[in-house]
Structure formats: C-alpha cells, structure tokens
C-alpha cells in the first residue's frame, strides 16, 4: 500500500541532516580512516603513510597472539552464550508455570540487565576475589582448591564468563518468557489431555515452538559477548593473566592505545567489521524467515 506523503522539497533533507551528519562524522569517516590505516604503514615520526597492501592483514593473521585472541574469543563467547541462554530458558520455563507470581519473580530476576558491564565486573571481581573473597575461602576450606584468577588462566576465564553471563541471563529471560507466553494455551492443554507430562511437553512442544526465539537470541548473545563485554574484561582481568582473557575487541584497544600500533589495530578493526557485517546479515535474513514462521 502506498503511503500518503507530504510535499516538501528541502524539508526531508533538513530532517535527515542531524542523523546523517553524525553518521558521516563519527561513523563513516572513522571507518574510512580505519580502512586507510589498515592498508598503509605510517611512520611513528609523522610524515606520509606508505601503501603496503594486505601486509598488515598478513602480519596480523600469522601472529600467534592473534590466534590466541581468536581462541579466547570463541571459548568466551560460547561459554557465556551457553550459560546465559541455558539459565535464561530454565528461569523462564519455571516462571511461566507460576501464573500468579510471574511478575514478582520477573522483577527479582531482570534487574542485572541494568548494571553496567564495568560494574558487573567490579562486583564479580570482589565476590570471586582470591584474597578476601568468600567464594575463594569456601573453595579452599571445602575442596582445598586454590582459586586464583590472577594466576590461573582457567580461573580468570571462569570469572569473566560468570560476570558476562550474569548480566545477560536477565535479557534472555525476558525474551524467553515473552516467547513462552505467546504459545497458545490450547496447544499445551491438548498435549496434556493426550497424556504428555510436563517434561515431555517441554521437549516435544515448547522447545520446538521457541526455536525462532532461541536462534535470534543466539545471534544477539554472540554479538554481546564479542562487543559489549569490553568493560567487564577491562575491570576484572585486564586481559590477563598473560593474554588468557584478551578477546579480539580488547586486543584492538590494547594494540591501538597501549601499543600505539595504528596499522595493526586498524587491520583488526576491519576484520571485526567483517564479522559484524556477517552477523548482521545473518540476523536480518533470519528475521525475514521468522515473519513467515509466524504466519
């Protein structure tokens, strides 16, 4: 159906101007700069940058540190996504059962979404602090386990995954609960009449009907783990010990601002942009299909 429109020769341009100005100024210009820096090598003493083609990319993808960062990112994102999706789904399944108290439980489960990643990092740093934290003390007393994320790579990874997943459970919970509440009661009730118990109904009816929500959340959780967890890493481990928790985004920051290696940082930025593009396109194609599913 055609929309009824207004006449106005310059008005639409004027209305779009603020958004486009900021996009060109702070998004596309810097992205162009990143592209330029990724294909050139600038001398640290100023002067002209030298065109080097794909050299920066080749240097980057052959670096063992970069391979390590990729592995760390994959482990971190998968663990965070699995933990927060699993718990979010479990909480939603249970909260959906208690019809009268759903709002009560929802209030008490969604607030971590509002906590800044950096503050979530601070809270978990303290909770899991190896020196005076209660958890470290209990682990030592009960299992004689010397928990120490400052020294152990594994413990550090557990710490950042906990902090990241803790924040994200609330988000997944909200979407799963909305998904559950949109499943028609009649479907569930007829399954129950046919003799399917609660577990059977979850496995054979609820989970398949939730799968569009689940796929959509998997993509969003991976995007979150890749890009929105900088604050958590920066406050808790600073990428350490060594580079055990240096995810790709953190490495861009480290190489650019601490190592001052603009070309290396820019090459990584470009690689990450391609990753975001892939994820965004995947998400939109999938959303197209979700519309059909609902029909």
């Amino acid at each position: 159906m055609r929309r009824v429109t207004f006449d106005g020769h310059w008005l639409p341009y004027l209305l779009l101007f603020p958004q486009l100005l900021i996009l060109v100024w702070f998004f596309f210009w810097p992205a162009g700069q990143a592209l330029y820096q990724a294909f050139t090598l600038s001398s640290p003493f100023g002067g002209y940058a030298e065109w080097v083609g794909f050299e920066n990319f080749v240097d980057m993808v052959t670096q063992p540190e970069y391979h390590k960062a990729i592995r760390v990112t994959v482990v971190f994102s998968l663990a965070t996504t699995a933990l927060s999706l699993g718990l979010g789904l479990l909480f939603a399944l249970f909260a959906d059962r208690v019809l009268r108290a759903t709002d009560f439980y929802r209030t008490l489960l969604i607030w971590p979404y509002a906590v800044a990643p950096a503050i979530a990092g601070a809270l978990w740093s303290f909770t899991l602090d190896p020196h005076s934290g209660v958890v470290a003390f209990a682990l030592k007393q009960l299992f004689n386990w010397g928990w120490n994320p400052e020294l152990s790579s594994f413990d550090a990874m557990v710490l950042v995954v906990f902090a990241a997943a803790w924040k994200q459970v609330a988000y997944n919970f909200v979407f799963f609960l909305a998904g559950l509440q949109s499943i028609p009661r009649a479907v569930i009730e007829s399954a129950a009449m046919d003799g399917a118990g609660p577990l059977r109904r979850v496995r054979d009816i609820i989970l398949p009907l939730l799968s569009p929500t689940t796929f959509f959340l998997v993509v969003l959780n991976i995007v979150y783990a890749f890009f929105d967890t900088f604050g958590i890493i920066h406050v808790t481990t600073g990428g350490g010990p060594g580079d055990a928790t240096t995810i790709l985004v953190y490495k861009v920051f480290q190489d650019g601002f601490i190592g001052l290696d603009l070309s290396a940082s820019a090459a990584q930025s470009i690689i990450l942009m391609i990753v975001v593009m892939g994820l965004t396109i995947f998400q939109f194609r999938f959303l197209e299909r979700r519309v059909h599913y609902a029909d």
Binding site: F27, V252, S269
Partner: peptide, 24 residues
Amino acid sequence: AFWIIFMSLMLPIEVRIVPTYEVA
C-alpha cells in the same frame, strides 16, 4: 539515506575505536 542509516548498524564503536578517538 535509508541505507546509510542501516549500514551504521555494522559499525559499533568497538570496531573503530582509534579513528573515532582521533576525530574526537
């Protein structure tokens, strides 16, 4: 205009940190 706005979805601040800082 629509596509310029759409494309910005693919440029989160985290992937253009250094050049955006330079503009600032």
